[in-house]
Amino acid sequence: MKRTLLLMSFLLIALLNSTYGQEYNFPDRNNVWKKAENNQFDYNVDKLEAAVNFAESNEYSGSRDLKQAIIKGFEREPFHDILGPTKERGGPAGLILKDGYLLASWGDIDRVDMTFSVTKSFLSTMAGLAVDQGLISNVEDKIGKYVWDGTFDGAHNSKINWEHLLQQNSDWSGELWGLEDWADRPPREGGLDDWRFRKLNEPGTVMEYNDVRVNVLAYSLTQVWRKPLPQILKENVMDKIGASTTWRWYGYDHAWTVIDGMKMQSVTGGGHSGAGIFISASDMARFGMVFLNDGKWKNHQIISENWIKKATQSSKPNVNYGYMWWLNKKGEEHWSGVPENVFYAAGFGGNFIIVDQENGLIIVTRWLEPRKAGEFAKLVYESF
């Protein structure tokens, strides 16, 4: 009996430590990541070094002048233009954390660069905070209940709920900030008339990666919060996790609206036409740590564990996509040799925040040739 009680006590202590994130290292504001001590973790140093060398030697092939890279990358889109800020990028950079301890880093992890569609995972977190704080009652609520200015009028758009926009399967139809939804990544077949007058898919049935609709989500969340989303991110997340003051979140130059008599910018969910979040690899890792630790930074709950579970569940149309997080399930986007529980934020040019809750791993990599990302992740896992 004594032995059983002692064992139960140890298990309870372990559970409490797990619950409050005490097994993880969380650096204070502006403190560098604490390096793992020799033999603190069981992994092959040479193999991990080989993975880092792979990331450094497989730099994204696009121009370091990201304005030119964007123009080239989306040249087949009709009417595509640069509408927001851009920035010349640095070279490959990243870091690998185990339980919050630094195993490896490369490049300049404090350099601020565009992060493109990694922004979408930040944006979906703004929706999660709105749910946590009761501003959105349910992700299955029709958005027209909250945004009644005509954005969700009509037989089709009136069916769209928050989850449809978060999973990118709404097929919202219209124009926002002068951009038509059909002109964003149109099919390779057909022409303007075919794209403009296509048959719309029932919301929730077909995923289509589309930045205009993502920006509709950003606009809608701005209407709900009644404040600029960068302010919401700063006050509710970045300040609380000790992020630097160097990150920025931009919208298109002309994307301004008036809410409660105040003029504010509606930000973008990516850098497709410029704008989005500009951030360092180190701050990206801090954001990833919140998701690693079930929504907590140290003992402070930043976003609910329930939201993270919902955000990382497969949508019906795409097993590899949740609420603007990519999921490493068995599907078209599966990375062989990498656990299926892994989820990640991904952006143009090879920007990634990879989260593995079961193994306590955070991997941030920047400017890695995107088609090499799975191979790089596999190399990291082979070192354990």
Rank of each mutant, 00 (worst) to 15 (best):
F10Q: 14
A14V: 11
Q22P: 02
V32M: 07
Q40H: 02
F41C: 09
D42H: 10
V52G: 04
A55Q: 05
E59Q: 06
S61D: 05
D65Y: 06
I70C: 02
H80W: 13
I82W: 07
R89Q: 06
G90S: 15
L97H: 09
D110S: 14
S121R: 03
L123E: 01
T125S: 11
L129H: 02
D132Y: 13
L135M: 13
S137Y: 01
D141K: 09
K142N: 14
I143T: 08
G144T: 05
K145A: 08
V147P: 11
A155I: 13
S158A: 07
K159R: 15
N161F: 10
Q168C: 08
D171N: 09
E175C: 12
W195L: 01
R196Q: 15
F197T: 10
N201R: 01
V206F: 03
W225L: 07
K227E: 15
L229V: 05
P230E: 12
I232Y: 07
I232D: 04
V237M: 12
Y250F: 09
G261H: 07
G274V: 01
G274M: 01
A275M: 01
A285L: 06
G288L: 03
V290R: 01
K296Q: 15
H300K: 15
I303P: 01
I303V: 13
K316Y: 06
P317D: 01
N318W: 04
V319S: 15
N320D: 14
G322R: 07
G322D: 12
K329N: 15
E333G: 05
E340C: 07
V342Q: 05
A345R: 02
G349P: 12
Q357C: 04
G360A: 13
T365Q: 14
V380M: 04
